[in-house]
């Protein structure tokens, strides 16, 4: 066996990594530049907003309510050992707005929207519909990618705001009806500890995650190759890469907001 073949393998993996990074960067830049320049496609943007925002509400709402409930229950079992039960409201609201709201909603919607975008655009690619757009005086980046990115960036913060409210409400339900807290005290505690920055940092994260999910869905769909199997691979890659990017950017953004 050639002693250099291992080295060769490392080299080729490295080169293909750089190639993908370059392709993704070009795609991102082109997507953003088309999203901010006319012509816009309001009908498609509104349609995508409905799909990404409105139709994701049930799944995001359910995730948030259970997250809030579990959070209240878990922190009660922990905090009661130090007689610090009073901090539950505080813990629930901070965790939900800063962290769990955006991340859980992001991951759930990555599964829902990332997959459907990749499958839709991937099918359009393999059936030559994307080429057909080009021959019909329409730029596919502008017609397909830009409206979905705009819808993702605008709808995710709204979804997360809803998730925040529902999540806190879930915590409240468990605290009041199961653990016997005084309702007005609990709400008072929730409100007192919450700062403006807690909520806005979560919403900024949400916008970033919306960008990531739509970008990954569009990118993998747009570059899918080779029929049904290619579209399947694109769908998987879109969801997996969106989830990993969401978790890593969550750390980066948290560091930017709170590491002072």
């Amino acid at each position: 066996m050639n002693p250099l073949s291992g080295l060769q393998k490392i080299g080729s993996v490295f080169i293909s990594f750089l190639e993908t990074a370059g392709k993704l960067t070009t795609f991102t830049v082109s997507g953003i530049s088309h999203a901010v320049r006319p012509p816009f496609y309001p009908r498609i943007i509104i349609h995508q907003m409905m799909d990404i925002g409105y139709y994701s509400l049930p799944v995001v709402g359910l995730t948030a309510v259970f997250a809030g409930m579990v959070l209240a229950l878990q922190s009660y079992t922990g905090f009661s050992r130090f007689s610090a039960e009073g901090a539950i409201a505080n813990v629930v609201v901070l965790s939900i707005t800063r962290e769990l709201g955006p991340v859980l909603a992001g991951l759930m919607v990555a599964g829902r929207i990332g997959a459907s975008l990749a499958a839709e655009i991937g099918t359009m690619r393999v059936t030559e519909q994307i080429d057909a757009l080009t021959t019909l005086s329409t730029n596919p980046m502008k017609y397909l990618v830009a409206p979905r990115m705009i819808a993702g960036i605008t709808m995710f913060p709204i979804l997360v705001l809803v998730a925040d409210v529902i999540g806190v409400f879930g915590g409240y339900m468990v605290a009041v009806y199961k653990l016997g807290f005084n309702p007005s005290n609990y709400l008072q505690n929730t409100w007192n500890f919450l700062t403006f920055e807690d909520v806005t940092s979560g919403l900024v994260k949400a916008a970033a995650f919306g960008f990531i999910v739509t970008l990954m869905g569009c990118y993998h769909g747009y570059n899918s190759r080779g029929g049904a199997q290619g579209v399947g691979t694109a769908t998987t890659n879109a969801v997996v890469s969106a989830c990993i990017l969401i978790l890593s950017f969550d750390y980066i953004l948290t560091e930017m907001f709170f590491a002072k």
Binding site: E128, A132, L136
Partner: peptide, 25 residues
């Protein structure tokens, strides 16, 4: 103008919007 092998019609749009896609664009 181009006729694609598999027709490549946009399946989210009705037939007339497919036909008129270019002039609408």
């Amino acid at each position: 103008g181009m006729l694609f092998q598999g027709a490549a019609l946009f399946d989210s749009l009705p037939v007339w919007e497919n036909v008129a896609f270019g002039i609408l664009a």
